[in-house]
Design a binder for these strands. Structure first.
Lengths: 249, 249
DNA sequence: TTGGTACTGTGCAAGCCATGAACACTTCAT
DNA sequence: ATGAAGTGTTCATGGCTTGCACAGTACCAA
């Protein structure tokens, strides 16, 4: 039963490679969806998601922007395809220890988001695209032996995904002094400015609990969000482990 | 010591109300930053973040888009101000039981994101704005009696924030059949289409673990992500609680 | 009182962007 | 070979952010 493709959100069918190849009439396409998405990925990796605009992609291919609409029905669809390709393949996970596997999965995802920060900017409107689904499949496969029911495994996956995503976002938006020094030494000034500014503002507004925490030398320290990531990940895994033990008891 | 405001990310100083009021010369401003942000908030609530564009805000105020630049230095700054106002005030939390308080905090935040879905779309480039900081302060205040060190409290806050954010995002992007029925009965067709399409695609690609889970009647059931939210929240709080107990032992 | 000056909102404009319509051209099916 | 289908082009529209020059307004100082 071929589901009605028109009812699907834009890009879903395309992402799964479901194309309605009409008769092979007319001139052969000089390009392909794959090429277009690959070029868009290049641009996004180089200059962020905003650089993956239709004109820029078209220019790099050597074609006008409108020509792309022969391959892709909208910008939104292109973004969906782009995001899916950017997910890439999930890591191979050990199938003996679910906890070690989940930890590896989350860490790999975290690193992945760090190396493709713009991936955090794409609005996740479409639920499951192939690579996306492959990541999820890898995780759920190792979670299965725990005996958790399906929806709970799904929720665990959400937990880990959201943690990786959020941690990477923090790292990106609040760069470490180390990364700042590497890129632009003047950004050191920005970091200092932010810290002293926030401290004074927080104090005068009596937000002392936050001010104390922000004042802590760990805040804005080197690699803080990796520490934070590991801390949170450990809590999450502890929570899941306790739940599993409780269930099997 | 007045920190150098120029080094701050755009909108930070403005968000904290630090304005360099020059001499009160020239015509009195017919409008105010506050009014502009309020109008932008109206528009965002009505039609999403994209509707809060300078031309639209200006039109509603009765002014040209360029006039807004007398009050706001860039679109980005407007967005920061808008987001901060949209955060609103944090809930009052009971100061007796940290776990109950944290749970309430997370639930309130989750509901908040649901009622202002576009808040999930604003790129969080600026770390702490006043309302934002107030929320964080409320949570950290109740976390303090646990004896956790500052950075760990911060990490716990991140954990809860990210969970609320992600859960709300899921709910928004994958609406429940109930909400679909309420809005557009034809969307029921879309939901069915997505489910059957995904199922067939996942099977043919041997992503059976995911397919099984997606096939589960709980998936796409009424209010699924609220259940998912509570499940994940319980795991997180369990993990934090275990950590606290371990530390104090 | 008067002149200067700083600040306001406006018009005009440039330069992005996504997207639509008309059109010429190419290839295949009949 | 002729027509239909498909491809890439040009032209066009309307949206967006943002810069610059300008006219007007209100305050300050003389």
């Amino acid at each position: 039963m071929p589901a009605d493709l028109d009812a699907l959100p834009p890009g879903l069918a395309a992402a799964w490679g479901v194309v309605d190849v009409g008769g092979r009439r007319g001139p052969k396409p000089a390009h392909s969806v794959d090429e277009i998405v690959a070029v868009a990925l290049e641009l996004a990796d180089e200059e962020g998601i905003a650089a993956a605009s239709l004109p820029k992609v078209a220019a790099r291919i050597g074609v006008t922007a409108n020509a792309l609409y022969r391959y892709v029905s909208s910008k939104e669809e292109l973004v969906v395809l782009l995001a899916d390709r950017a997910w890439g393949d999930p890591p191979k996970l050990p199938d003996t220890d679910w906890r070690a596997a989940a930890e590896l999965w989350a860490h790999t995802l975290f690193d992945h988001f760090l190396s493709r920060p713009w991936l955090l900017d794409v609005p996740a409107t479409v639920p499951l695209t192939p690579h996306n689904a492959a990541w999820l499949d890898a995780l759920i496969t190792v979670l299965r032996p725990t005996g958790l029911p399906g929806p709970e495994m799904l929720n665990c996956a959400y937990l880990l995904d959201s943690h990786a995503r959020y941690g990477a976002g923090l790292r990106r938006n609040m760069p470490t002094p180390a990364s700042l020094r590497r890129t632009n030494p003047d950004h050191q000034r920005a970091t200092d400015a932010v810290r002293t500014f926030l401290n004074s503002q927080l104090r005068t507004r009596n937000l002392n609990a936050v001010a104390d925490v922000v004042q802590d030398p760990m805040f804005l320290a080197d690699e803080p969000s990796l520490d934070g990531f590991d801390f949170g990940l450990a809590r999450i895994l502890d929570g899941i482990e306790a739940h599993i033990r409780k269930r099997s008891a």
